[in-house]
Design a protein around this nucleic acid. Structure first.
Lengths: 220, 220
DNA sequence: TATCTTTTTCAATGTTTCCTCACTTCTTTA
DNA sequence: TAAAGAAGTGAGGAAACATTGAAAAAGATA
């Protein structure tokens, strides 16, 4: 989910914004001063910044000038056109005056995220030293590449999505039927067998474990 | 210079905006109704739209929904949060209420143009020794020129925008079907095949790789 | 508007890859 | 140890891909 950095020293306003954004299930990172914000920006990958101007430490205007490539929405009590224009020309993407309407804020956040939403890489699925790259449908074990067929990929994806749990054969068949053609229990076994064979060419560790009478799970 | 389309039926407001923008040496295109705006958009390459909501013909809300890939700043007498939020979520990039301050308008215009410029820079259509010329639909491989048709260009563009990643057939078909009605998975294959043939006349390296059951990708 | 050219789609054929089925062998458990 | 479940194998068929030529559609030109 998208990460939003809130830079605001007033605790009440800070928490008010935070609550509203968390309802929309954004991930929130908090900064209560300009210096703190800059430190966070060095470490974390932030998708959008909500920025107050009057801040302890480095002020908002400075931050706007320094930050590149991350959309900034300024939320400020400064209502003069001069302030707005300066900040917008220096790099801010939008400017909202306090007191603000929360729905409008949410809409304007969505606008900025939408504009900036060019690259939306799917995340990688990891378990132990396995990595399923969803972008190019490949499995990596200990950094070695293993080619999987469509159905094999669908099966392994389900197993990795439910790590350490037994996935019943029926459930597995049902889940993969979304991505691939229907197949019966016998076929499932063959797919599992084929995958194990492929994995064996790379490592002698067992990854896919059978649970007698129930189904399969990813090995601890 | 940047071309801005002003869509506003009130002559006084229209001219007021126009004068201010011409001072900044933007090129202005005029539309006094929604229908007129849509006709212009089909022909001209516009960089930004200033849009009133209450318009004769097609209204502003409809235009916002229809237009893609051109930043829109709505300038409206509608001040309710509901109106703002709807328009912003439907595709507008900014919303200014009347009466507006001209300096703020100019600043917000510059913000949108700046954002759009950055986006274009990011979309450098290069991968390895391939280069797509956006202007005349040509592909260069190792500085050799290959002519591509419209559809071929659209497909290859999508592949180059997601280098080393599989682009699903569905995704590619969506692209083709934007302009044409029918489209078959078969057609996609033919386009790919034709492109490969063209590329083969220039180099014997393979560039477009098929990923079984999923789609295609640009070769590693 | 009629004609010609380019582009896209359709249909047919051959090829490759993958899935399933049936069967055998191995393992677990009652 | 018998029965039931799981693993593995190879053949056959199904699905997906590649390529081609011809038909249809779109676009250009006069």
């Amino acid at each position: 989910m998208k990460k939003i950095l809130i830079v605001e020293d007033n605790i009440d306003i800070h928490n008010l914004i935070k609550e509203n954004l968390e309802k929309e299930s954004y991930t929130i990172i908090d900064a209560y001063s300009g210096t703190e914000a800059m430190l966070i920006l060095e470490k974390e990958k932030i998708d959008l910044i909500l920025l107050d101007l009057m801040l302890p430490g480095i002020n908002g205007e400075e931050i706007v000038k320094k930050v590149k490539n991350i959309p900034i929405i300024v939320i400020s009590a400064k209502v003069s056109t001069e302030d707005k224009v300066n900040v917008l020309l220096n790099g801010a993407n939008d400017y909202i005056t306090k007191p603000f309407n929360k729905d409008e804020l949410l809409a304007r956040i969505k606008v900025q995220l939408r504009i900036n939403n060019n690259k939306k890489d799917e995340e990688e699925l990891r378990f132990k030293d396995m990595m399923l790259d969803q972008n190019n449908h490949k499995l990596y074990i200990k950094d070695k590449e293993i080619y999987l067929t469509k159905t094999e990929y669908a099966i392994l994806k389900q197993l990795i999505l439910n790590p350490k749990q037994v996935v019943t054969k029926t459930k597995l068949l049902e889940l993969i039927s979304e991505d691939t053609l229907d197949c019966d229990e016998n076929s499932l076994k063959v797919h599992i067998s084929n995958m194990r064979k492929k994995i064996r060419t790379v490592t002698k560790d067992e990854y896919i474990e059978s649970v007698w009478g129930i189904g399969f799970k990813i090995h601890e």
